[in-house]
Every structure is written in C-alpha cells, then in structure tokens.
C-alpha cells in the first residue's frame, strides 16, 4: 500500500475534523441561551414598566388618599398650600379629545377603507396606500404644530368663542393621525373577505354599495372594530398634539372650546417644568402614567379579544 491510501480521504478527514470540534457543540448550546436572554429583555421591559409605575404610585398614595385621587373633581397640584389631586378632570380632558378624534377618524377612515377595498382599481390602491403610510409616519410633534398654527386659527374663524387652547383642534388632528390606522387595518380586514361571497351577492343582483355595506362590512366587522379600539388606545396615549394645542387647564366639564388638559399633557407639563425629585408632584406623574397605562392596556387587550373571538373564518 502506498502512504497515500493509508490516509483517509478528504471527505472523511473533514467529517472527523468537524466531529472533533468541541467548540461547535458548545456554540450550538450557548447560542439559544443568548437568544433567549435577548428575548427576555422585552419581558423585563414590561415588568420594568409595571413595577416602576406601581412602586412610585404607591409612594404617591402615601401622601394623597386614593379616594381623593379617583373621585376628586379638581386637579390643582400647583396651588401651593392645598394641592388637590382629583384625576377626573384629566380623564375627562383625555376623553373629550379621544371622542372628537374618533368622530373624525371613523367615518373618514372607514370610507377610505371601503373605497380602497371595494371600489378602487389595483393601480389606485397601490398609489394611495403608501400615501396613507406617509400620513401615519408623520411625527406627532409635526401634527401638534399643525393643530396649533393652522387648525386652531381656522376653527377660531368659524367658532368665535374658541380659545387658542381647546379640545376641538387637537381632537380633529389626533383624528387625522389615527385615520390611516383605521383605514389600513379595516382595508386589510375587508380585503380578506373571500371574493366568492362578493360574487354571490353581485350575482343575485346587488349593487356594489349593497355588497360593501351588507355583505363585506358585516363579514369584516371584527377586524374593523379591533382597528377602532386600537385607534382609541392610540388617541388616549397621544401626547405631543394635546400638549401643544390642548392647553394645561384641567377642567371638570363637558365644554370643548376652552383650554383643557389630558393625562399625557399633565405629565409633559410637570417634566418640562422643574418639579423637584421626591415632591408629591413628581410622584403624581407616575400615578397619572399608571392610570393612562391601564386605560391603554384594557383597550389593547379588548382589541386582541375582539379580533380573535369574533373572527369569521372562511
């Protein structure tokens, strides 16, 4: 035998070599652990949010009674001697803006969704959808500036009693901000209704309008409602538009022409001012943040529940 034949073939060498590599086995074991640690960061973030909010809110409630906070009708944290911490005016401010936003976003968003999904040609849809994406990508600070310097003056020309800071202008602009979300999610829900159902109705002599409103809309309802609930959640958590155009006067009434304050705008007011660390005002932003967090969490869970529970399967 020649010496060459005694040596194993290159392939066998490679196999042997790779078997001997202990490092490789170790890597195969370590990598999943590393990746799991990365994945746990997002869980840690949630715990971080919940614990910081609870921890600081508990500190706040050692200074302010919880019933005063939940049922108090006056929010006057800056009135030196007797500050009042009743959350209701802030919730009402948030509620007003959200309601106006939804009144704007739902009809226009749904109208756009029906048009894009049922009437528009493929080409029109492919041009308009990216434009809606652009609208969704505009930073909220830009919307806030737009509300303050453009929408408010126009509204003031129509409603003379409107103050510079009010609930209507930020409400409308928040509505424009969440509109693309409703339009695009509802459009997705309606587009996923199978063609055969549409054609069945058309074959029976229904017009396109009747197909859209009486066949497609009910079939896609769970997706549409989920999109609206998510839009409500976004509107509740919206910060910059209401800080710039909503004002900083918490009020317990249903007027929309006067200056208001939302939960988010209060947090901004405190953090842009100089309320020192450790003061009751400092802790109050966590209590307000926690309230806000609960509102949006409930909305998000509701949206998930609706889209899962009431989904029509075809």
């Amino acid at each position: 035998m020649t010496s060459k034949q005694q040596e194993s073939s290159p392939v066998q060498q490679m196999i042997a070599k790779s078997r001997n590599r202990k490092g490789k086995k170790v890597i195969e074991k370590i990598i999943p652990i590393g990746l799991f640690l990365a994945a746990s960061i997002s869980v840690l973030t949630t715990f971080g949010i919940v614990f910081t909010l609870i921890f600081e809110t508990v500190e706040f409630f050692t200074r302010v009674s919880i019933t005063d906070y939940l049922f108090g009708k006056e929010w006057l944290p800056f009135s030196g001697k007797e500050p009042l911490y009743g959350i209701l005016p802030l919730i009402l401010g948030t509620f007003k803006v959200t309601l106006i936003a939804i009144l704007v976003a739902v009809p226009f968003g749904l109208g756009a969704a029906i048009y894009l999904s049922e009437y528009a040609s493929e080409r029109v849809r492919k041009t308009i959808k990216p434009v809606l994406e652009v609208l969704a990508g505009v930073p909220t600070i830009v919307y806030g500036f737009f509300a303050l310097t453009f929408v408010t003056p126009i509204l003031q020309a129509i409603i003379p009693s409107l103050k510079i800071f009010n609930a209507v202008s930020p409400g409308i602009v928040v509505g424009i901000m969440v509109l693309p979300m409703i339009a695009s999610m509802s459009e997705d829900a309606m587009s996923s209704v199978p063609k055969s159902i549409r054609e069945g109705a058309l074959g029976l002599g229904a017009t396109k309008l009747e197909v859209s409103l009486k066949v497609v809309l009910p079939a896609a309802l769970s997706g549409i409602i989920a999109s609206i609930v998510l839009a409500v959640s976004r509107a509740i958590g919206e910060t910059m538009i209401v800080s710039l155009a909503g004002g900083s006067t918490p009020r317990f009434d249903f007027g929309v022409t006067d200056s208001i304050q939302t939960m988010t705008a209060y947090i901004v007011q405190v953090t842009t001012g100089d309320a020192g660390y450790g003061t009751t005002i400092y802790y109050s932003i966590y209590a307000v943040g926690f309230t806000l967090f609960i509102f949006t969490l409930v909305m998000n869970l509701l949206a998930t529940y609706i889209s899962k529970r009431f989904r029509e399967e075809y």
């Binding site: 997002s42 973030t45 949630t46 971080g48 949010i49 910081t52 909010l53 998510l230 959640s233 509740i236 958590g237 919206e238 910060t239 988010t264 947090i267 901004v268 953090t271 932003i285 966590y286 943040g289 806000l292 967090f293 949006t296 969490l297 909305m299 998000n300 869970l301 998930t304």
Partner: peptide, 14 residues
C-alpha cells in the same frame, strides 16, 4: 404585542 401598544410617554417614565 402588548408592549407595542404602550404609549411612548410611559416608556419615558420607565
């Protein structure tokens, strides 16, 4: 999926 719905201002508090 829930974290995606938390308002950005709450992340600020974190």
């Amino acid at each position: 999926s829930n974290l995606a719905g938390v308002p950005s201002i709450v992340f600020g508090l974190l």
